Simulated assay, not measured.
Amino acid sequence: MSELALACDLSLSGMTRLVTRLEAGGLVERVQCAEDARGYKAVLTDAGLARLEEAYPSHLAGIRRHIVDHVDPAALPVLTQTMERIGVPAAEIIRSNARS
Rank of each mutant, 00 (worst) to 15 (best):
D72G: 13
Y56D: 04
T80R: 10
G39T: 05
G39P: 00
A55S: 15
L79G: 11
R64M: 04
D69I: 02
A24L: 09
L76F: 03
G39N: 01
E54N: 09
H66E: 10
Y56H: 09
H66F: 06
A75V: 14
A34E: 07
K41H: 12
V43E: 00
V28A: 08
A34S: 09
E53F: 03
L79H: 07
D46E: 14
A37S: 15
I67E: 04
A50F: 04
L76Y: 01
C33V: 00
T45L: 04
H59Y: 09
E54D: 02
D36M: 02
L44Q: 12
A75P: 08
G62Q: 06
G26Y: 05
V43C: 00
K41Y: 06
P73L: 10
R51I: 01
T82A: 13
D36C: 08
I63P: 02
I67K: 04
T82I: 13
A55Q: 09
A42P: 01
A74R: 15
E29C: 08
R65C: 03
A55T: 08
L49E: 14
T82D: 11
R38C: 01
A61E: 05
V28F: 09
S58G: 03
V68H: 01
R65F: 03
R38T: 04
A34Q: 05
E53V: 11
V31Y: 02
A34K: 10
L49D: 09
A55P: 03
K41A: 08
G48W: 02
I63H: 02
